[in-house]
């Protein structure tokens, strides 16, 4: 019992097919709460696919078949009985390219609350301030809340997308290469933000940037051709990998 409390996500023999393509093969993964878990591997290895299993975004794609088990806080999320709306409210996702809605900054952050039925201006105001403060945008933007979100810089947009998630108080943040369209300085600042956020949230980050995984994550998994080859303490993965394939990847023999 003590042990299960230490896992927020647990997959067991997870297999996923896109039509005939076997994209995830027997993935067994355990993610601990309040830390950053990194998933690395060459493109096409299935790391983004795995991430999208956790909030069931793969449902949007035709011809996806999933078997095995994925538990979020000990509840099976692959079952049809799961309420996707509640699940996605509790598990937020940050995408590769910042994707703020073509609405005002305020409405972007308030969006999640609005769709879940919150109409009180007072509550919305407070949530917007709190969320923007958490991503360190409040001071910059507090006088520009009615501006279109598309006017912001890419880094600001990505922060806004994170704030948009925080407004609905999720438990788990999924980040799918959140810095791949940002410059190095913006990347560094987003990483600092992630370090702040991990005090209150669990984060799983997919990245093709090994240095980034080494910098921000505490635990890390290496994926290759749909398999989770190795998973463990980040330091150990990068200094003393147990699997030869992991060693080859982190030393740059392919990828």
């Amino acid at each position: 019992m003590q042990n299960s409390k230490l896992k927020i996500i647990e997959t067991n023999k997870l297999n996923l097919f896109y039509g005939a393509f076997h994209a995830l093969i027997d993935v067994n993964l355990q993610v601990k709460p309040r830390m950053i878990t990194g998933l690395i591997g060459p493109s096409g290895c299935g790391k983004s696919t795995l991430l999208r299993v956790f909030n069931r975004m793969n449902d949007l794609i035709d011809g996806v078949k999933i078997s095995g088990s994925v538990k979020f806080e000990n509840k099976e999320i692959l079952s049809d009985a799961i309420d996707l709306i509640t699940l996605r409210k509790r598990i937020g996702m940050v995408f590769q390219r910042p994707n703020p809605f073509p609405l005002t900054i305020f409405e972007n952050v308030a969006y999640g609350l609005r769709i879940h039925g919150e109409g009180s201006r007072l509550v919305l105001d407070e949530a917007v301030q709190k969320s923007l403060t958490a991503v360190l945008l409040w001071d910059e933007l507090k006088d520009k809340l009615s501006l279109s979100a598309l006017e912001l810089s890419l880094e600001q947009q990505q922060r806004l997308c994170i704030a948009r998630l925080l407004a609905v108080t999720p438990d788990l943040l999924l980040m799918d290469e959140p810095c791949s369209s940002l410059d190095p300085l913006a990347t560094m600042r987003i990483e600092e933000l992630m370090n702040e956020l991990k005090k209150e949230y669990t984060i799983i980050i997919v990245t093709h940037n090994m240095q980034q995984a080494a910098r921000v994550s505490q635990e890390c998994g290496f994926m290759l051709l749909g398999e989770l080859v190795e998973f463990g303490d980040t330091k150990q993965i990068f200094t003393a990998p147990r699997d030869k394939r992991t060693d080859d990847y982190i030393t740059g023999r392919y990828g």
Binding site: L60, L84, I85, L87, Y111, R164, V168
Partner: peptide, 22 residues
């Protein structure tokens, strides 16, 4: 852009909410 739709659905919006709000 498909990313608008994904962003909205990933926040727990229903299909109809996504259509008329975004």
């Amino acid at each position: 852009p498909k990313s608008y739709k994904e962003g909205s659905l990933a926040l727990g919006a229903t299909r109809w909410q996504t259509i008329y709000r975004v």
